[in-house]
Design a protein around this nucleic acid. Sequence first.
DNA 1: GCAATAAAAGATATTTATGTCTTTTATTTA
DNA 2: TAAATAAAAGACATAAATATCTTTTATTGC
Lengths: 142, 142
Amino acid sequence: MVLSKSCEYAIRASIYIGFQSDKGEKVGVVEISEAIESPIHFTGKILQTLSRMKIISSSKGPNGGFFISDATAVYLIDIVRALDGNELFSACVMGLKSCSDSKPCPMHNQVKPIRTQLLIEFSKKSVYEMVQEYKKDKYFLK
Amino acid sequence: MVLSKSCEYAIRASIYIGFQSDKGEKVGVVEISEAIESPIHFTGKILQTLSRMKIISSSKGPNGGFFISDATAVYLIDIVRALDGNELFSACVMGLKSCSDSKPCPMHNQVKPIRTQLLIEFSKKSVYEMVQEYKKDKYFLK
DNA sequence: GCAATAAAAGATATTTATGTCTTTTATTTA
DNA sequence: TAAATAAAAGACATAAATATCTTTTATTGC
């Protein structure tokens, strides 16, 4: 798989939170996990991570919940890096310790532009944009 | 990570086996795992899989070992598919069950050409080619 | 202050991937 | 046929990812 399950849930949760924030609403973990079809408690953990990473915000207590103050400022790449780190864009395809630009593995140079492209696409896509598309029913979150 | 550890080891093992086969030699799992710096018994399992999948060949008994009869006929994509399946090229980035060409997730259309490109590169690279580069000391196997 | 709410945090469980060890089977050579 | 060799197969162990459950902390409204 390209991204971990945690990361997949994180992306979907961020979109749903962004969608609710767009309406001025905060949203709790139960509603989120129902909306994106993910395990509740596991989702809670992921939201904690996203919160610590300042990707989403949260408030406790009644009328509390998760929200995103500025979805135009959060990009897909931020979520991916927060959950899965940068490996996808940097680790050698063959798992070689010795692989580098100066001693490249057989796939190094072929994979490099592909990764760059993936990084570019992930960097271009904001949560805001994904929320707008979601509002237009262009896709589901499960 | 892009590929599983099993798959990384499988690629490196295949190259080393191809390298030995090129010299007309069969090679055992102990030598392979030393050459590619991988856990011996785990490597044994992976070689069994590659063997079942007809990617490499093996013979038991004295002077037995693993070999590749025609390295020009084995491509990187074959090894990747044998160990990791086709997910890397097909599974939805966000893990959506509903994602498809007609109801694409926000990254579907951006990721599609990238995956196609990765598939093309994996399909172009033969074990033979990787062995030739290895013979020229262009890279290490660990 | 008290009760209710909801996230944060911690402990535990399950599953999957990774790794190890032992036994079995096939082959070769003497 | 017996001994040695090496892969195949099976059982087991460990680590990491995924998932669940319980307790704690912060906040709100009464």
